[in-house]
Design a protein around this nucleic acid. Structure first.
Length: 501
RNA sequence: GCGGGCAUAGUUUAGGGGUAAAACCCCAGCCUUCCAAGCUGGUGUCCUCGGUUCGAUUCCGAGUGCCCGCACCA
């Protein structure tokens, strides 16, 4: 455990030292659950998103893209269930860690011959009056009271006088004093649209990108020349207020999703094959950006933990230093979302299937992956400390495809103008294609270590043979540290082949 | 959200009621013909706010952030 903690700490420290990830608004003490991406971080993030977009949208005939707004008409969230399910005040039991909805927790004072002997609490149910009475009788017997039990008057916890809270026993432990006051549970970030603030202006920052896709379903079907089965893909920020941030950028309040809604014909026999297919497609994709297959896993959500409308959900997991955690969730959501939006908006969202010659509301498979989680997985799998001739070497072994910097260009020494000139010219040529760096400071070995530490896959060094002899340059491979001499043209072709898309 | 620990340079850490230190990193210069060489110089609100004190970075309180466990994460 200690070893793993220090591994993640080393990675966090490197991420900051080399400009990948900073704590948000750090000069003001930071803000829990928010992060900023520095010069190298933003490149890595962009490369991950581009790789996804290229593979999932551009290279496929059956998926189109979308970029919907972060703030939408609040009715979207009423339809999706995000408002109803998550705005009621909640009560926590500090001892049992149970959480209850305050309006579903009922309490009554137990009064015998006009004297209060305590309180009973019970969760809302059809026979709660009966059960509460039984509990009151038990309490009376335990207190060895003989008199007459008054009629119980049940009231909900959120209507209680606050002075009563400490007297109410937790339904989990039966002992008073562990329940918190009712607190509002803010799943979504709330904001107000317009300069004047009133209740009608309340809007939300989206907690998932998916609903923007569902809300645009009709637009895309009407304009996009799409035919079932087809998908709509979106990359974008999402915000969740209710989570507890943990594990660096793994779980944060502001994060970015790469999400596809893949629409398929209805029917219980149809979705399992598509679902399985997507799990395979997505697992393979993670391998193409350099995640080792042995660190990837699958976790099937048990039936009883699924949302009521979900048919199935399988997570693709990654073995992080802090444990195996979800990278991507692939859910079979039936037609729940489209049905909800159709009912709420009053607009038909059915499509006509040319093959089946029938009209229906499509079902959907939803592969949804976190950019920030993928970023961290990439960083964790790339990080390694090697030994080269007895010296420690920190290397980020990024796949060239997503490496933030592709090539480093160096003159062997900086006080020989011909070497500097030639290497600068090579640098400018490479700059037209990729993000590359030029570095002439310090000994060549130091410069190699510096690019190793930020995961630059290739280094080009201009030495005396490059300006006097056969004019060849050397290309160094980050992972092997081996160098190969080749002409400038050969080097260009070599890099194209190793880095190019 | 609950409980515990922690907060000193970009990083890792030392120190101490009397104007703060090391190593590495980073920047500039000199030197340097291939894997963290050397020399010179440079870069610091001791997390924030309050209290105790002649004096607080140090002691106390609160806040914020980080780490660990539990809970939450349809």
């Amino acid at each position: 455990m200690n070893k793993e903690n220090s591994l993640i700490e080393d990675i966090v420290s490197l991420a900051k030292r080399r400009g990948f990830v900073f704590q948000s608004s750090e000069i003001y003490g930071g803000l829990n659950g928010f992060f900023d991406y520095g010069p190298l971080g933003v490149e890595l993030r962009k490369n991950i998103k581009d790789a996804w977009w290229n593979d999932m949208v551009r290279k496929r005939d059956d998926i189109v893209g979308l970029d919907s707004s972060i703030i939408m008409n609040p009715k979207v969230w009423e339809a999706s269930g995000h408002i109803d399910g998550f705005t009621d005040p909640m009560v926590d039991c500090k001892e049992s860690k149970m959480r209850y909805r305050a309006d579903q927790l009922f309490v009554a004072e137990v009064v015998v011959d006009g004297e209060s002997i305590g309180w009973v609490s019970i969760l809302e149910s059809e026979k709660m009056e009966e059960d509460a009475l039984a509990m009151a009788e038990l309490m009376k017997r335990k207190a060895s009271k003989q008199g007459t039990l008054s009629i119980l008057s049940l009231q909900s916890y959120d209507e209680l006088d606050p002075s009563i809270y400490p007297l109410v026993p937790s339904p989990a432990t039966g002992k008073p004093g562990s329940l918190t006051p009712p607190r509002e549970f803010n799943m979504m970030f709330e904001t107000h649209v317009g300069a004047l603030r009133d209740a009608s202006s309340t809007c939300y920052l989206r907690p998932e990108t998916a609903q923007g896709i569902f809300a645009n379903f009709k637009n895309i079907v009407d304009t996009g020349r799409v035919k079932i089965p087809f998908g709509i893909a979106q990359i974008g920020k999402a915000f969740r207020n209710e989570i507890t941030p943990r594990n660096f950028i793994f779980r944060s309040r502001e994060f970015e999703q790469m999400e596809i809604e893949y629409f398929i014909p209805p029917g219980d026999e149809v979705w399992p094959d598509y679902h399985r297919e997507w799990i395979e497609v997505r697992k393979k994709w993670f391998e193409t950006i350099g995640l080792p297959p042995e660190l990837l896993g699958e976790q099937v959500h048990p039936k009883e933990k699924l949302a009521h409308y979900a048919r199935a959900c399988t997570d693709i997991t990654f073995k992080f230093p802090f444990g195996e955690q979800e990278l991507e969730g692939i859910a079979a959501r039936g037609n729940f979302d489209l049905a909800q939006h159709q009912a709420k908006s009053g607009k038909s969202l059915e499509i006509f299937d040319e093959n089946l010659k029938e009209k229906y509301l499509p079902h959907v498979i939803e592969p949804s992956v976190g950019v920030d989680r993928t970023f961290l997985a990439v960083l964790c799998s790339a990080f390694s400390i090697d030994e080269v001739e007895g010296e420690k070497r920190t290397v980020l072994r990024f796949d060239p495809r997503i490496a933030p910097i592709k090539v480093g260009v160096f003159p062997l020494v900086k006080n020989k103008p011909e070497l500097v000139e030639r290497s600068r010219s090579i640098y400018h040529k490479l700059q037209k294609k990729w993000n590359v760096v030029y570095d002439q400071g310090g000994a060549i070995g130091r410069r190699y270590r510096r690019i190793d530490e930020v995961g630059v896959p290739f280094g080009i060094t201009v030495d005396f043979d490059s300006v006097e002899g056969d004019r060849t340059i050397t290309v160094r491979d980050r992972d092997t540290t081996k160098q190969e001499r080749m002409s400038e043209d050969e080097a260009m072709a070599y890099l194209d082949q190793k880095i190019g898309f």
